[in-house]
Computed example of a mutant assay.
Amino acid sequence: MRKKIVLLVSLVLFIAVMPTLVAQAAQEALAADQVIVDMAVMQGPSGFGTIGLNRNEGRLDDQTRIDLSVYPSPNEVIARLANGELDIAALPTNVAANLYAKGVPVKTAAVVGEGMLLFLTTDKTITELSDLQDRKISIPGSGSTPDQMTKILVSALGFDYESDVQLDYSIASPAQLAQMMIAGKLDLAVLPEPFVTMVLNANEQAVPLLDVQVLWSALTGTGNYPMTVIVVSDGFIAEHSDRLPLVMGAIKDSVEWVNANPGDAGVMIEEAGIMKAAMATPAIPRCNLVFRTATEGYDAMDTYLKVLHGFDYASVGGSVPDESFYLAY
């Protein structure tokens, strides 16, 4: 009788704890299937389009979360991609091509930003492109996208950029360059958004002289050029190919949300340390934030990289990437 009572009590206790054991096992299984996607963006407009990923603390579903980190320049992002610390990053298109050429195991998955460069002047005597002769053009950073595009387009306009104009790289920071234009200490510069908007709003003498994107389109017969792309590490592709549609879909949704909600996006951009909301919010409508898969954006990227290669092959790592550089998913 005593044995039966002990057995009955044991059975009751087992039944009582069974739901807890089942729930614990389910939680352990769920935790084992969790995927944290380490993603990097840089300070500045290239990080704008992805900020919507932080709306739900990076959670895409019960098993997938994106951890978005912000860095001040491409150098640290490049190093972390090379040593396998990152799964995904937003980078300038030619930087992505350079990484691929150097054997860093990454592929391009999407275009998330197109060109947004303007020639600005505060000098009323500069009214047409021929007035660029013998002028000093301030450019934020030697070898940067503004530098590459300036050289290409100045040459296309019939100038020798080594003798007919003076390309000045003494101020590498676009923010500082913008402040110098606002203060009237520079009269001709090539700037990206949001610094274009900042100068135009703060200095009534400033006017756009040349929309780089319009000239590029006229010269190449294409649309805007792909300035920022999303790259994915080969390791992430191999281990989590099933999550790629979810992740890329979330990035697309983020871009669309940022374009539709510049005020809310600006607040989140500042919270993430990408840029002050006061600068980001008014510039977002002019930042040409887009989402095109690598397949959809292939022609534009291939044209852009071929032009860069023909002009300065080192700017893309020595060779134009082949089709395996582009990720289909």
Rank of each mutant, 00 (worst) to 15 (best):
A172P: 03
P192F: 00
V214L: 10
M181P: 08
N201T: 10
N203T: 05
L191V: 02
A178Y: 02
N201C: 02
G184H: 07
A183S: 12
S173Y: 06
M180E: 14
F195M: 10
Q205R: 13
D211Q: 13
L200V: 00
Q176K: 15
Q176F: 02
P194W: 00
E193F: 05
L188F: 04
M181V: 00
M198K: 13
F195Y: 15
P174Y: 00
A189N: 14
P208L: 04
L188V: 01
L209M: 10
E193L: 04
Q179Y: 01
Q179G: 14
T197I: 02
E193A: 05
K185C: 00
A183E: 13
N201G: 07
D187L: 05
L188Q: 12
D211N: 15
V196Y: 04
A202M: 10
I182Y: 05
D211F: 08
K185I: 00
P174S: 02
M181S: 03
N201R: 15
Q205K: 15
A189L: 10
P174M: 03
A178V: 00
V190M: 11
M180H: 09
L191G: 07
A183D: 14
A189Q: 11
L210W: 03
I182V: 10
E204S: 15
L188G: 10
T197Y: 01
A183T: 00
V214H: 10
G184T: 07
P208R: 08
A178I: 00
D211V: 05
L210P: 11
Q213Y: 08
K185A: 09
Q179S: 11
A206D: 12
N203F: 02
A175Y: 09
Q213T: 07
P208Y: 01
P174T: 04
Q205M: 09
L177T: 02
E204P: 05
A202F: 01
L186N: 12
L186S: 11
G184A: 09
L200S: 12
A178C: 06
P174I: 00
I171M: 10
V212A: 08
A178L: 07
L191T: 06
N203R: 12
I171Y: 00
A189H: 12
S173L: 12
A172R: 14
V190C: 03
Q179P: 01
F195D: 15
N203K: 12
D211T: 06
A183K: 09
A206L: 06
L186M: 14
P208I: 00
N203W: 05
P208E: 15
N201L: 12
L186T: 11
I182N: 03
T197Q: 13
S173N: 11
P192D: 01
V207A: 05
M180L: 13
A178H: 06
V207T: 14
V196F: 05
M198S: 13
I182P: 07
Q213V: 02
D211C: 01
V207L: 03
D187K: 15
V196E: 08
P194K: 01
K185H: 11
V196G: 07
A189C: 12
F195L: 12
L200H: 07
P192H: 07
S173R: 10
A175T: 08
A175K: 13
V212T: 05
Q176T: 09
D187S: 15
I182M: 05
P174N: 02
V212P: 02
I171G: 01
F195H: 15
L191W: 05
L210V: 11
A206E: 12
V214K: 14
A178N: 09
D187M: 09
